[in-house]
Nucleic acid binder design. Structure first.
Lengths: 254, 254
DNA sequence: GCAAAAGTGTTTAGCTTACACCCATGA
DNA sequence: TCATGGGTGTAAGCTAAACACTTTTGC
């Protein structure tokens, strides 16, 4: 590192952007907010904001997450409780031209949340929504609900979203992260529907059940049962302490 | 994102730091440079520097890598050729107190290189060296060669190094990245010694051979042989096009 | 009764492991 | 000839995939 000279380095703005994922109606969805000003006015974008002077990057991401969703982030490694969300750093994007106004480096974070009542965006509930990631990525401009403007995501947010979705898809394979999409108590069937939604595949319910209940530390039975999914009562579980699954869940070949 | 107002966000310095790993004498080693000025004067640190005004983050990392080692980085996904090194973004570190002089956000990158002749540090060869990561991480202050100053790494570089080593250790499990530690043409035994050095374990040579030669796209025979390791002549291979190994290499349980 | 979802048992195929054994070279 | 590393064969044990089958509820 060169000797200290304040004129020796260019100043950057540093932001955090959030890929907040949840599973709604058997589909993987991301939180997007509508931009009120140029550039990309009227386009959907990932929530985010500037990092403050005295803030660590993770703190800034947790603050933005709370402002946008009301979710409290919890430390990674600690099992999800109440309405805590999993939060981890994703990657950093710093193309000199990614924001036409100035040099902005964005430290993207990935948050995973259980299905939530409804997004709130700093008091303006109309400017935020959960959008199926498939409608944001595979068919830009398509898959929108009636009345929704069809437009690509602002800035490089389509790339950031794609990276976040890919991270989630691969990480539930070898970690217990899928439980972050579930409420505090959940059934094996509900957990399986999370995997099916995130991966976009159908899994054999019998083999899935044997696999997850047979992996030590993955699931802890609470003793309760529920019939909220219909059919025979299902045991309720909490996420166990294990974070790394060995052997991993196997994503079926495409 | 708030409307554009240059006074609305604090200015940051943005740097790239490099975790450059190689395998030397059957040990995983990292490139470290000695700091000539305070803070942490005389301590070893990871190589790095400021991101320039017109530079993408990856460009800045590739430039620093070339300045420190003479290595050209190649695109990920493309098999290593001549003296190209694998280069990927690792993580970003932005604790407000990580640099006592000013607010610095560092985008760390991970580079993997074959065994190189000797480090050069911008013309000052004495201020750079390859250090076994075990001596830098497990025994801070220990494991130094005679005459070397025993001191912990500067700033938060011990954490960055640990994160980079962990990334390398896990990524060679399910990708063909281990070939980035090898010269353009290498034997199965040489590749196995890379795995053994990075993981710190002994692997069965017979089963390893069957596994890597049986994974489609991992290795491509060049037709040549070598006896540079002694014993019976071994076939030479190049890295194949496959980047994801399925099934993965299995790291033995600890 | 019937549909629906939860679980259990069983078979088969593929893969890992451990290790016996042979091969081709340099010293 | 011997040491050294390269490479093949094979049997035991584990895992996952496929699927027949039983269980327990709501309607």
């Amino acid at each position: 590192m060169p000797p200290y000279d304040p004129s020796a380095f260019p100043p950057f703005a540093v932001t955090v952007d959030l890929v907040v994922l949840t599973v709604r109606r058997h589909a993987l969805c991301a939180l997007v907010v509508r931009r009120g000003e140029p550039p990309f006015q009227g386009h959907w974008a990932l929530p985010g904001g500037f990092v403050r002077d005295d803030e660590d990057l993770t703190e800034a991401a947790a603050r933005e997450l709370a402002e946008e969703t009301g979710l409290r982030a919890h430390d990674p490694g600690v099992p999800a409780q109440d309405n805590g969300a999993h939060l981890e750093q994703l990657a950093t994007y710093g193309d000199p031209k990614r924001d036409p106004r100035m040099r902005v480096v964005s430290v993207a974070h990935l948050a995973l949340a259980p299905d939530l009542p409804a997004p709130r965006a700093g008091g303006d509930a109309h400017s935020a929504r959960w959008a199926p990631v498939e409608s944001l990525m595979d068919h830009p401009g398509g898959g929108e609900r009636e009345g929704e403007q069809a437009a690509p995501l602002a800035f490089d947010h389509a790339q950031i979203l794609a990276d976040g979705v890919e991270r989630a898809r691969s990480k539930i394979e070898y970690s217990s992260l899928a439980t972050a999409f579930c409420p505090p108590e959940f059934t094996v069937g509900e957990l399986r529907r999370v995997y099916e939604a995130v991966w976009g595949v159908a899994l054999d319910p019998r083999n899935f059940h044997r696999k997850v209940t047979g992996t030590p530390g993955f699931l802890v039975p609470t003793g309760g049962t529920t019939t909220r999914q219909g059919g025979r009562p299902a045991q309720l579980f909490r996420a166990g302490g294990a974070t790394l699954l060995n052997p991993p869940m196997l994503r079926p070949e495409v």
